[in-house]
Simulated scan of single mutants.
Amino acid sequence: MTHTNDTLIQAAGCVLWRSSPVDGEPEICLVHRPKYDDWSHPKGKLKRGEDHLTGALREVAEESGYTADPGTELSTLRYFTGGRPKQVRYWAAEAISGSFTPSLEVDRILWLSPAAARSRLTQYRDRTLVDELLATLRHA
């Protein structure tokens, strides 16, 4: 099967977290995209000439409204979308400051416990990133 455009889509994102204001446990930010009606980690395509980490932090700011402090690089997810290969590099990133404003791209965000985030994520492949984040936080 040949694809008319099999160019790799380069994207990046973060597993955005903060310490819960209630109990100090980690909370994970998920974004809801009305176009796909899905819950995911903030991520998006790189701009021309943009490096992955810069793109990941830009996407976090655009989609969640938060400035993030990047930590450990997590797994790179690879999958097909619209018949094209896509590669998304992820980092653990702590939310430092900011606040959410709904947009056409992202209409809601949720701060959830890791267990709740894992079950709310639409794509099964995104769930392993939650476990990776927790592992990096435990070893921090």
Rank of each mutant, 00 (worst) to 15 (best):
T2D: 11
D6N: 12
D6W: 03
T7G: 11
L8E: 10
I9G: 02
A12Q: 03
G13C: 03
W17I: 01
W17D: 00
R18A: 05
G24K: 06
E25N: 13
P26R: 05
P26Y: 02
E27D: 11
C29L: 14
R33Y: 04
D38C: 13
H41Q: 13
K45P: 00
K47R: 06
G49F: 04
D51F: 02
L53R: 14
G55M: 00
G55L: 01
L57K: 10
R58V: 05
R58C: 02
E59H: 09
V60Q: 07
S64F: 04
G65D: 10
G65M: 11
E73A: 10
E73M: 06
L74W: 02
S75D: 09
R78H: 07
R78K: 12
G83R: 02
P85T: 03
K86L: 10
K86F: 00
V88D: 02
Y90S: 06
W91C: 02
E94M: 11
S97F: 07
G98W: 00
G98L: 00
F100A: 04
T101N: 09
P102E: 03
S103F: 08
S103H: 04
E105M: 10
R108A: 13
L110N: 06
S113C: 03
A115W: 00
A115N: 10
A117W: 04
A117N: 11
R118N: 12
S119Y: 06
R125A: 15
D126I: 03
R127P: 13
T128Q: 15
V130G: 06
D131N: 14
E132H: 11
L134N: 06
L134D: 01
L137R: 06
